[in-house]
Amino acid sequence: MPKGYVVARAKVSNATQWAAYAAKASEAIRKFGGTPLVRGGMMTVAEGEGRARNVVIEFESFEAAKAYAMSQDYAEARKLREGAGEIDIVVVEGV
């Protein structure tokens, strides 16, 4: 069974508020068995638009990744992030 991934790219405008979101989201990631593969770090835009913060989280399956992203646990984290920046998040199936 292919693994599932949550992929996010973000622009942070309030680092303190974002940190509270990240801490709460990390709790949900652990609860749903996710493993962060990329979380911030150096980046270079090779094509198109880029954002400074990029995240890739691996889960055992697409269903597990989707369950995390749609969970009440993550929804609580999301509330802490409101107004602290912009983010795009997708859930994708691995190969």
Rank of each mutant, 00 (worst) to 15 (best):
Lys3His: 12
Lys3Cys: 06
Lys3Thr: 05
Lys3Gln: 11
Gly4Leu: 01
Gly4Met: 05
Tyr5Cys: 03
Val7Ser: 02
Arg9Asp: 12
Ala10Ile: 04
Ala10Tyr: 00
Ser13Gln: 11
Gln17Phe: 10
Trp18His: 08
Ala19Pro: 09
Ala20Val: 07
Ala22Glu: 10
Lys24Asn: 04
Ala25Tyr: 03
Ser26Pro: 03
Ser26His: 07
Ser26Val: 03
Glu27Ala: 15
Ile29Glu: 00
Ile29Ala: 03
Arg30Val: 13
Arg30Met: 09
Lys31Gly: 02
Lys31Asp: 08
Phe32Met: 02
Phe32Thr: 02
Gly33Glu: 01
Gly33Arg: 00
Thr35Phe: 03
Pro36Arg: 02
Leu37Gln: 03
Val38Gln: 00
Val38Met: 05
Arg39Lys: 06
Arg39Leu: 08
Gly40Lys: 00
Gly41His: 05
Gly41Cys: 01
Met42Ala: 12
Met42Arg: 04
Met42Phe: 09
Ala46Trp: 05
Glu47Asp: 10
Gly48Gln: 05
Arg53Val: 12
Asn54Arg: 08
Val55Leu: 04
Val55Glu: 04
Val56Leu: 11
Glu58Asn: 02
Glu58Met: 06
Phe59Lys: 02
Ser61Glu: 08
Phe62Gln: 03
Glu63Ala: 12
Glu63Gly: 05
Ala64Gln: 08
Ala69Trp: 06
Ala69Cys: 12
Ala69Ile: 01
Met70Ala: 10
Ser71Thr: 07
Ser71Pro: 07
Ser71Tyr: 01
Asp73Thr: 11
Ala75Asp: 15
Glu76Ser: 12
Ala77Phe: 04
Ala77Ile: 08
Arg78Ser: 13
Leu80Thr: 08
Arg81Gln: 09
Glu82Lys: 13
Ala84Gly: 15
Glu86Ala: 13
Glu86Gln: 12
Glu86Gly: 09
Glu86Leu: 11
Ile87Trp: 03
Asp88Ala: 13
Ile89Ser: 08
Ile89Leu: 15
Val90Ser: 14
Val91Leu: 14
Val91Asn: 08
Val92Glu: 05
Glu93Met: 07
Val95Cys: 09
